[in-house]
Design a protein around this nucleic acid. Structure first.
Length: 491
RNA sequence: GGCCCCGUAGCUCAAUUUGGCAGAGCAGUAGACUCUUAAUCUAUUGGUUGAAGGUUCGAGUCCUUCCGGGGUCACCA
């Protein structure tokens, strides 16, 4: 390792002695590789210039081949001593895998029918002194691939250079996000920004990250949701707003959780959750359309995204799964039911918590085809409005499940300030009794709601999980460039 | 946080079962080679076996602790 870097530095010195700046300032690029490969007939024999990283190298005595990788592909370069002269070929001989070069030359096809560029001039654009991980491939099959996940996540730049399919996932991620923005913009939504640093956190059940503002001499929390601020904007007169940004939750990490993740929340005045179901369905179908996807694979099953999404009620699903009329159960009966199925419950678990646990155990993994689960218990939904024509224990809330994963969470928002105060007080009580994730009472928010909030529908969508679903990735770490890892002092 | 698995050269991996000289391919270096493509041929460098202790005549291998990762359960989205 040390010796490789020494050799590279020696080459750097040789290059400088030849009067070559190994780190020049610019290079004029006329074409990208994919463009040349697609338009060979037009470009055959034409002069082009490309730039990129050397990712394969077959040096021979007086003529050589290598591949240069640019933004979305790579192209073979042919360099012949007779064509470029002694000096240029000597420069070429000092190049290594990983160096960034500019090539100008003429487009042609080799004996073996590979579209290539015959070099007129090669320009070193950046000398690499750290070696790339070995990677060779034939017919798409990789040999000694760069596969160690930890190395890939810690050195994502290497992963991106060596594993082009990783780049594809992130290109798709970008497309999904821009298609969401386009969709919302074209439906009259205004993109807004609300505080990341908040004196009180709310809008979800989670523990926050805490930080300190020195000038204010005050503790602040990194937001766990955008909800309460976006509703303040609805109260202020905006009728359609969205925010697409990071939120932070101080909880365990695994295949489905990163401590910071990207969330979309949007709020629509004068609509209820029925409207939102249709809207979310169109939004997701729009993303799939932009990506050109028709089906998703979840385990062995193929899901048709363009089928109409199903709708089912929370308690119906739960009762069907358990074979019992659960909505009439009291706490003791629920506790026994959990016990029967070996589901662990914490000491202070309340009724809503038990519903939630049972749901997760019996129902959610079965929801493969896109399904809106409707009408949640009030106790686990302190910001949602009571179901019209109901008994008061159910709220108008839905979650969208696809492939067994929760993708969206939405309610007809509670806008009755008196009821909202009661619900927040209930959460406060739960908090006092030891539920660290119960929500805090936000007096300023209650005051805002007392000013009058229109009937409103609100949706939250976990973008990372949507991207996982639409790109077929099994780990959230594979849709986040730099996933959270414990820091390593050696690095 | 609990449990299970893993960590050996720049990369991919052997050697761990049964303790006995730390190895291979690729990458690198030197040389040959004017249509190669996992280029080829010849020669060759490269190691604190994640870290620290312990057992032993002897530890990559056994034991303890720690560090890091993966999986899973719990919690959550």
């Amino acid at each position: 390792m040390k010796q490789i870097i020494e050799f590279r530095k020696k080459k750097l010195k040789e290059l400088r002695d030849m009067g070559i700046n190994p780190y020049p300032y610019k290079f004029d690029v006329s074409h990208v590789s994919q463009n040349i490969l697609k338009n060979f007939k037009l470009l055959k024999g034409e002069s082009v210039s490309v730039a990129g990283r050397i990712v394969s190298l077959r040096k021979m005595g007086k003529a050589s081949f290598f591949h240069v990788q640019d933004q979305d592909g790579k192209i073979q370069i042919y360099i012949k001593k007779d064509n470029v002269g002694e000096e240029q070929y000597a420069l070429f001989k000092l190049l290594d895998m990983g160096d960034i070069v500019g090539i100008s030359g003429k487009v042609f096809k080799t004996k073996t029918e590979e579209i290539s560029i015959a070099t007129d001039e090669v320009t070193l654009l950046s000398k690499s002194i750290q070696p790339l991980p070995g990677s060779k491939e034939k017919d798409g099959e990789k040999y000694s691939a760069f596969a160690n996940k930890e190395h890939r996540y810690r050195h994502r730049y290497l992963d991106l250079v060596v594993n082009p399919e990783v780049r594809e996932v992130f290109i798709k991620r970008s497309k999904i996000i821009s298609s969401i923005r386009n969709f919302l913009d074209s439906h009259g939504y205004v993109e807004v920004e609300t505080p990341v640093l908040q004196p009180l956190y709310g809008g979800a059940f989670a523990q926050p990250f805490k930080t300190r503002h020195y000038a204010l001499d005050q503790d602040l929390y990194l937001r766990i949701a955008d909800e309460l601020y976006l509703k303040r904007l609805i109260i202020g007169g905006f009728t359609r707003v969205y925010e697409l940004s990071k939120v932070f939750r101080n909880e365990g990490m695994d295949r489905n959780h990163n401590p910071e993740f990207t969330m979309l929340e949007f709020y629509t005045a004068y609509v209820d959750y029925f409207y939102l179901m249709d809207f979310v369905e169109s939004l997701i179908k729009h993303c799939a359309e932009v990506l050109g996807i028709k089906t998703l694979s979840a385990g062995d099953e193929e899901i048709d995204i363009f089928q109409p999404f199903q709708k089912a009620s929370y308690f119906e699903l739960l009762e069907k799964a358990a074979g019992l009329d659960i909505s009439t159960f009291d706490e003791t009966q629920l506790k026994e039911l959990c016990k029967e199925h070996n589901i662990a419950l914490e000491e202070n678990a309340h009724k809503g918590r038990m519903y939630d646990v049972l749901m997760r155990e019996f129902v959610e993994p079965e929801l493969i085809a896109p399904t809106f689960v409707m009408d949640y218990p009030k106790v686990i939904s302190p910001l949602a409005k009571i179901k019209r024509n109901g008994d008061g224990s159910i709220v108008e809330r839905f979650e969208l499940f696809m492939g067994g994963n929760e993708i969206a969470n939405a309610f007809t928002e509670l806008n009755d300030p008196v009821d909202q105060r009661i619900r927040m007080e209930e959460q406060s009580e739960l908090r006092k009794s030891g539920d660290l994730e119960a929500q805090t009472l936000d007096e300023d928010f209650l005051k805002a709601m007392e000013t009058g909030m229109p009937p409103t529908g609100g949706v939250g969508i976990g973008i990372d999980r949507l991207v996982m679903l639409l790109t077929g990735q099994r780990s959230i770490k594979d849709v986040i460039f730099f996933p959270a890892l414990r820091s390593q002092p050696d690095d």
